[in-house]
Each structure stands twice: as C-alpha cells, then as structure tokens.
Amino acid sequence: MRNSLVICAAIATFVSSAAAAVDCNPSYNVPPSTTCFTNCNIQTGQKWVPGWTMDHTSPLFLDSLALMCNKAGPNYMNFMTNAGMCMAKCTGDDPDLFTAEFTAACAWWNKHKNDSFTVSICPTATDSFCQPGFRGKKNGRGPEGACCSHSDDCQESCIKGKCNAPIATTCYTGSEGRGNGDGYNGACCETSDDCWESCVKGKCNGPSLATCDIGFIGKKTGKGPKNSCCNSNRDCKNSCVKGKCD
C-alpha cells in the first residue's frame, strides 16, 4: 500500500529522533468504547496474539483485529466468548458503546486487512519494531529481530524485547535426535533426518524461521498461504515443501 511506503520513508528520514511517531494505520478513526471493555479485549487477546492491542499505531493492530473480526478464524469464538464473559463484569458501562466500536472496527478491518504494513517492510527503521509470533512461546525458535519476553523465546538471547543474532557456534533445541525432519536453519541436529534439509556440523541448514510466516505452523487448519512456515501438508492450503507452504 502507498501509505506503508510513505510511512517507511518517514521513519528512515527521522529515525535519529527518539520522538518520531509512527502510525501504522493512519486511516483508522473509530472512537473507543470504555476502558473496561478495552481491557477485557486486551486481556483475552494476549492468549492468541501476544501484544494484542487496540492501538491503531501499532504494527500488531491488524493481527489483533483479525482475532476479533475474522469469524472464520480458528480462535474467533473462543476470543469472543472469553471477552464477553469479562465484559459482563463491566457494570455501569453501556454495551452499545462496545457494539458501535466493534461494528466500525471490523468494517475498517475488512477493508484494510490486506494492507501491507508489516515489520518486514521497515526491518531496520527503528529498534521498536520486532517480528511477532515468538514472544512468550519459550520454544527457543525466535530468530534475530523476533519479539521476545525471555531468552527462552530466542535462538540466542532476548535483549530489550528483541532476539539477538545466534552465535555461530550455538544452535537451538527441539529437533535434535528426533528424526522428524522439522529442523529449520540453526536447529541442533544429530543427522539430516532431524532437518528439513541437511545437518552440517551439528546444525541444520535450509529454510529459516525468519523468512516465513509462523502463524500457521502446527495448526493443521489447511489454511497456510504460500511461504507460511509448516510442519506438514495439513498446515497449508497446498503442500508443505521443506518447511514452507508452496
């Protein structure tokens, strides 16, 4: 989208200024409901989208709205049920305010859900951006630049909320000795049977988790689009080839 490119150019121009503000979704102008309703959504959304937010300036905003607005999503009903139970405790708040926000927000999301402002568009613009999908998972798979809350989220270490670059002599665990053929680049391995491609000096080579969308891996929903990370064909719309949906 043109907005994405303009924003990225602005970031590149003003990155030296700590006060530079970035609005990832400048066309969003839906009035908020109440603090209690919003907090219920935020609290509930964390389970499926770490960092779930109603802040339209955030790179996670579209992912957050997708959970709330995509009725075909695998976690839509769970999110709405749990958020609704929480909102029932917001005594004194007018539920019509949330209904108005929900309706307008989801109408905006349906129009803008394919907007292309993502972390990868401006990967070096500012340290405030990181690759979502790894924070709090503690599976040791977060590549350089991934969001993290603990070093257990990363292949190496979590520094100021972002995974740093793996040291060349280290590898991340989870695939070694299992023979499942699911080890991405940098995974520890005993033989090539542990990796998508080959085991070289105790580390898998081949596809990297940093180069594919991890939102479908292991979900077995058959909805993973091209270049999504995958464990099997069941994660993809088509086929899983060497760790990526084709």
Results as ranks from 00 to 15, higher is better:
N29T: 08
K203T: 01
A66Y: 00
N3V: 07
C229S: 11
C236Q: 10
C199P: 07
D194Y: 10
T126K: 13
G45S: 07
A9V: 13
A72W: 01
D55F: 01
G84R: 08
S157C: 02
S116Y: 01
N41K: 07
G92K: 09
G145A: 05
G92M: 03
C36G: 07
E101F: 15
D127Q: 14
N114V: 00
F61V: 09
S192V: 08
M80T: 13
Q131S: 11
P26S: 04
W108F: 14
V119I: 13
N25G: 03
G133A: 03
C147G: 09
F134D: 06
G84W: 02
N75L: 05
D23A: 08
C122W: 08
G177R: 03
L67I: 11
T124M: 13
H150W: 02
C24R: 02
D127I: 14
G136N: 06
K220L: 08
C24I: 00
R234P: 00
A10V: 03
A104Q: 14
S192Q: 05
N164K: 12
I214Q: 13
C189G: 10
M1A: 14
K160E: 06
K71Q: 10
I159S: 12
N205Y: 02
P132W: 02
N110Q: 12
P143Y: 05
K244H: 12
I121Q: 13
P59A: 11
L209F: 09
